[in-house]
Design a protein around this nucleic acid. Structure first.
Lengths: 161, 161
DNA sequence: CCCTGTCTTCAGAAATTTCTGAACGTTCGC
DNA sequence: GCGAACGTTCAGAAATTTCTGAAGACAGGG
């Protein structure tokens, strides 16, 4: 266990890395806040104060991260504020969704294949199509294997209370 | 086989889709130009005229796409211009490299795990770490399987001359 | 050794993205 | 129903990214 400052720095570093990978800045920071929080859920106000940004920014960031399937809204009785929680299967969901953008690319490539006659261009496009189609097929298999593996090691090692 | 206009439109559509997936605009357009060209290689001048942009833009775009491992420089005797060609293993290379940014994320997460004590945050971070480590391991296996499968179907079906 | 054709670099313009703050809905407790 | 507490939206400011055009660098032929 280390200090609060170090925790925040690690969170910001992870957020920065995610930005480097193409994620939007505020969404990445929000996600990191969830990851590094000891709370089960966070409210919009929590996020605003943790990140030092306006309510408007939080609203936008939360919507984006929720749409990615990483967090979900939770209704807590007796609290007027909306709470958010990281979803259990966040990462596998994210991976699967990323592969639905692969599907988008695949469609565009397919149109390309139809638009050219036999020749070099067609060969290249078909190669690209084949690889992306392969990935699209294999992604769910991979996720299943991970989850099976994880369930197994949880059973052996026991989960945290 | 269809018209030149349709070919260009399909190319631009694919480029647009790639931009939507996070690729830079000019890089995506250059890549599409390669994919849809009947030529084996293209020069910077070819790209500039095909895309209708300045030499400076082409220089930047080509550098980026080359750095992604999708195209390579080719020296052609008797031509002063530099030629570029899509690499044969472009897509598998791209996939592999994308997984080296996964490695970057993994490192950042690992730092996070070290920065928090036992508790919810640590559980979340460890889960994330496990999934990304799993992906990093499996990516090369996937690529190998694709290449084996492709080699097999080439052997059976015969490759284009 | 110079000259020409080609590529790269870079400062600034243009376009795009991102964030904010204030106004506007909405919902819940009373 | 009323009022207060929250959340959302949106116009515009700020920051960032992207593109260009011109100037410079480099290589090879003559």
């Amino acid at each position: 266990m280390t200090g609060e400052t170090e925790r925040r720095e690690a969170a910001e570093r992870l957020a920065l890395t995610l930005v480097g990978v193409g994620m939007q800045r505020m969404g990445a920071r929000a996600l990191a806040a969830f990851l590094f929080s000891e709370q089960e859920t966070l409210t919009a106000a929590d996020l605003a104060s943790e990140l030092g940004v306006s309510a408007g920014s939080v609203s936008g960031a939360v919507r984006m991260v929720a749409q990615m399937g990483l967090i979900e809204r939770v209704h807590v009785a007796g609290s007027r504020r909306e709470h958010f929680r990281m979803r259990d299967n966040a990462w596998t969901t994210l991976y699967t969704r990323q592969h639905s953008v692969v599907d988008e690319v695949l469609r565009a490539v397919d149109e390309g294949v139809d638009a050219v006659g036999a020749g070099r261009a067609r060969d290249r496009l078909e190669y690209m199509r084949d690889f992306y189609a392969f990935l699209l097929n294999e992604a769910p298999v991979l996720v299943e294997r991970f989850e099976a593996q994880r369930a197994e090691s949880q059973r052996r090692g026991g989960s945290r209370p």
